[in-house]
Simulated assay, not measured.
Amino acid sequence: MRILHTMLRTGDLQRSIDFYTQILGMKLLRRKDYPDGEFTLAFLGYGDESEQTVIELTYNWGVEQYTLGSGYGHIAIEVDDVHQATARIKAQGGKILRDAGPMNAGSTIIAFVEDPDGYPIELIGARAG
């Protein structure tokens, strides 16, 4: 067994695709409209779905905004250098929620950014070895 994807609902599909591809460097792997259900799915990731976990963006036609709720946590993405990643994201207009620095009560370097729909994304420094 393995985790296939995490699904996020978006109020503006193209805006979210642009964020995940242009700012976070993912690739749009596939996209499909479902006219009978009035929704569109887009799958994005850093590698092929057969090998990698991906993000599924769901756009329900005509819905422009969602309430995130208090139970949702975040998506985590490993980066080589958290300081460089946050500087690049900030330079591209991305919203930084927490600047790069050690995690609470630990030494792992992390940061948090926010996608266009308000979902937090944790950037975690690559582990040595």
Results as ranks from 00 to 15, higher is better:
120 P>V: 03
97 L>E: 12
57 L>S: 05
90 K>D: 00
112 F>A: 08
62 G>T: 11
42 A>H: 04
125 G>M: 14
48 D>C: 12
104 N>S: 13
56 E>H: 12
109 I>F: 07
49 E>C: 07
107 S>E: 15
123 L>G: 00
79 V>G: 02
33 D>T: 09
127 R>F: 14
103 M>V: 14
5 H>T: 05
5 H>V: 04
43 F>D: 00
126 A>T: 12
104 N>W: 15
99 D>Q: 11
107 S>P: 08
93 G>I: 04
16 S>I: 06
29 L>M: 05
23 I>K: 01
22 Q>S: 11
4 L>F: 13
124 I>A: 10
20 Y>I: 03
30 R>A: 09
126 A>N: 10
73 G>S: 14
86 T>S: 01
18 D>K: 02
91 A>L: 02
14 Q>R: 13
126 A>M: 09
101 G>M: 00
41 L>G: 04
31 R>Y: 08
95 K>Q: 14
48 D>G: 12
43 F>R: 00
74 H>N: 09
33 D>Q: 10
9 R>Y: 10
14 Q>N: 15
63 V>N: 05
30 R>V: 08
6 T>D: 04
23 I>W: 01
69 G>A: 05
59 Y>H: 11
5 H>I: 07
97 L>Y: 06
111 A>I: 08
85 A>Y: 00
31 R>E: 12
96 I>Q: 02
90 K>I: 00
47 G>V: 01
6 T>M: 07
30 R>E: 08
83 H>I: 09
32 K>E: 15
10 T>G: 05
94 G>D: 01
122 E>N: 08
60 N>W: 13
119 Y>G: 00
87 A>L: 09
37 G>W: 13
122 E>R: 05
114 E>W: 04
96 I>P: 00
118 G>M: 07
34 Y>H: 13
71 G>Y: 09
111 A>Q: 04
77 I>V: 12
62 G>L: 08
70 S>N: 15
25 G>D: 03
114 E>T: 07
77 I>M: 07
119 Y>N: 09
79 V>C: 04
116 P>A: 07
99 D>I: 06
47 G>P: 00
100 A>I: 04
71 G>T: 10
42 A>V: 06
68 L>A: 14
29 L>K: 03
66 Y>K: 10
97 L>I: 12
118 G>D: 02
98 R>I: 10
42 A>C: 05
58 T>G: 05
67 T>R: 15
16 S>Y: 04
72 Y>C: 07
36 D>C: 03
86 T>W: 00
78 E>A: 08
3 I>V: 13
61 W>R: 15
72 Y>R: 09
